[in-house]
Nucleic acid binder design. Structure first.
Lengths: 125, 125
DNA sequence: AACCCTATCGCAACATTGTTGCAAACATAA
DNA sequence: TTATGTTTGCAACAATGTTGCGATAGGGTT
């Protein structure tokens, strides 16, 4: 995959942010006019294909992207994500991998575990 | 809450369908022109308020509604939901309640556990 | 350095989902 | 039957995400 200005900038943002970001979150962090809205969607999807990011569908239906600490060794991404209803951020809680066991014959491809509530930061304030 | 034609019809649909339904799914099952699109959104939300249904955000961001077998005794709804990528349905798997444990000071309000893959029906065909 | 190939981009247009304000219609209780 | 407040329809809007296509620009090759 090619290194383009947009790709580099977006990857940099994903890698230096500790919460998951939507397309519009990314756009807000990019220099004005660096690239088109559509490009952000496309680059984010490409980063997922390249295993440099993973997708989380937030409780409001908005898709967020985050890099993953353990990506190099494990592409499962079945850890819990937490949506704070107060500061409106989604964070990976990598330490927490829920255990569950489906009935026979279910083939699992993707897992989207999202817990919504109030994060410690917001509770403290 | 009042019993209206729309409410009765939508509740009937939710209660007699064993998969979770989006607004447009419900609309497709309603008699043509029984009520407006907006009314379906509003009725579904009202049913959630009355604890007659619960919400699941699907992996594609679309919000689905389902009645819940154990609603009378337990409003947690933290069971697993399964999205079949083949037949494109979301089903409640009430038997499976994942166990997880967040770090201290996270206040949990809602849980959205979604597993996506291929369901037994589609695998058999 | 010039060239080529093709991945990537920008733009415009579109689709879908979901929300809001307000006036009209309706359910229910008095 | 009337009064009250809930519910509805309509129209308009907002946000997210997708698609097609011509233009642009990586990056390898000569």
């Amino acid at each position: 995959m090619r290194n383009t200005v947009a790709r580099d900038a977006i990857l940099e943002i994903i890698n230096t942010t500790d919460v998951a970001l939507s397309q519009s979150d990314v756009q807000a962090k990019l220099p004005e006019g660096l690239c088109n809205r559509v490009t952000i969607y496309r680059v984010l999807d490409r980063l997922v294909d390249e295993h440099l990011a993973h997708k989380i569908t937030n409780i409001d239906g908005v898709i967020k992207y985050a890099n993953c600490q353990s990506c190099a060794t494990n592409h499962k991404h079945n850890h819990v994500h937490f949506n704070c209803e107060c500061c409106n951020t989604v964070t990976c809680i990598e330490a927490v991998e829920p255990s569950f066991k489906l009935p026979a014959n279910y083939e699992v491809n993707t897992v989207n575990f999202l817990v919504s509530g109030i994060c410690p930061e917001c509770k403290g304030n």
